[in-house]
Simulated assay, not measured.
Amino acid sequence: MAEFAALMMIASGAIHAVVNAVLKSGDDKLASRALIDLSGGLLVLPAIFLFPAPHGAWGWLAGSLVVHAIYFLSLVRAFEVADMSASYPVMRGTAPVFAAMGSVAFLGDAITAPVAVGMGLVTTGIFASAIGRNLTWHALGWSLLTGMSVACYTVLDAGGVRNAPSPMSYIAWAFFVLGAVIGASFALYRGPQFITYARRNWRGCVAAGALGVVSYGLAMLAYSVEDLPRLAPLRESSILFALVIAVVFLGEKADRLKIAGGATIFAGVVTLLLAR
């Protein structure tokens, strides 16, 4: 199960990069975020009738909801003021380190030496790929806040899936609540602009909403069977896919640092897959 959990995290990272590329490419990122989250919430709506309510995990879910709101807002702002190839490495590079520290402190997870080495390689590679990018102090602040938010909701959701009656009960309710509360709030904030945007862009955002459910659903399933210090960096393999997407589909430039950073991330991923 531990190896299967690791593979789920890599798949989760690949899908996550696609979802963020859809968000980055939208001309109204807050409306895109609202539509993506609403779509995900509606897609899991039938599941909340199939699984028990997450008794024992409501506190974890409430905390995750608050942190996700901060995460979505900071993510939107980071993408508004910086290239994806610059902001994405910073936000995802800081996340696994903080998540590992939080999981040790609050969940009792362990960090072995090979896991620490793998995590260090992934984080180093992510930051190396961002060196020289057009990242202002303003954009750096939003990217760092996004990374810390990722770490916080990762720890909260790991606690949630482990304390709920079943992982699927927490996953279904988490996506439903996130869509119903955060997605609806963003949509109401945008007002008539959201309706106009949704009419033009609903296909891509609905697809991204479905992919988001699959991506983070896989991650939460993995959290239920394996320690976070090993898993969190594996999900950040999404940066490899994000760099390819940014260059091939968003027209951003590649250079030697990006290539070197990607190679270092790959070495870290291999180390984590082999770690015990």
Results as ranks from 00 to 15, higher is better:
2 A>E: 07
2 A>T: 05
5 A>R: 13
6 A>T: 04
8 M>K: 10
9 M>N: 06
9 M>L: 15
17 A>K: 03
18 V>I: 12
19 V>L: 10
24 K>R: 14
25 S>Q: 10
27 D>I: 00
30 L>M: 11
31 A>H: 06
38 L>K: 08
39 S>G: 07
39 S>W: 00
40 G>N: 00
41 G>E: 01
48 I>H: 07
52 P>T: 05
53 A>W: 09
54 P>Q: 06
59 G>K: 11
70 I>A: 15
75 L>S: 15
76 V>F: 11
78 A>N: 10
86 A>F: 06
91 M>C: 00
98 F>H: 04
102 G>R: 07
106 F>W: 06
117 V>P: 12
117 V>N: 08
118 G>Y: 05
119 M>T: 07
120 G>W: 02
124 T>R: 10
125 G>S: 09
128 A>L: 15
131 I>C: 08
135 L>C: 02
139 A>E: 00
149 S>N: 08
152 C>M: 12
167 P>C: 12
168 M>P: 01
169 S>G: 14
175 F>Y: 11
178 L>G: 12
185 S>K: 11
186 F>W: 04
186 F>I: 08
186 F>M: 15
189 Y>P: 08
193 Q>K: 15
193 Q>V: 08
199 R>C: 11
201 N>P: 08
201 N>K: 13
204 G>K: 08
204 G>L: 10
208 A>P: 01
208 A>D: 07
218 L>Q: 03
221 L>M: 13
234 L>F: 05
239 I>Q: 04
244 V>R: 13
246 A>Q: 06
252 E>Q: 07
253 K>I: 02
255 D>G: 13
268 G>F: 01
271 T>R: 13
274 L>A: 15
276 R>I: 03
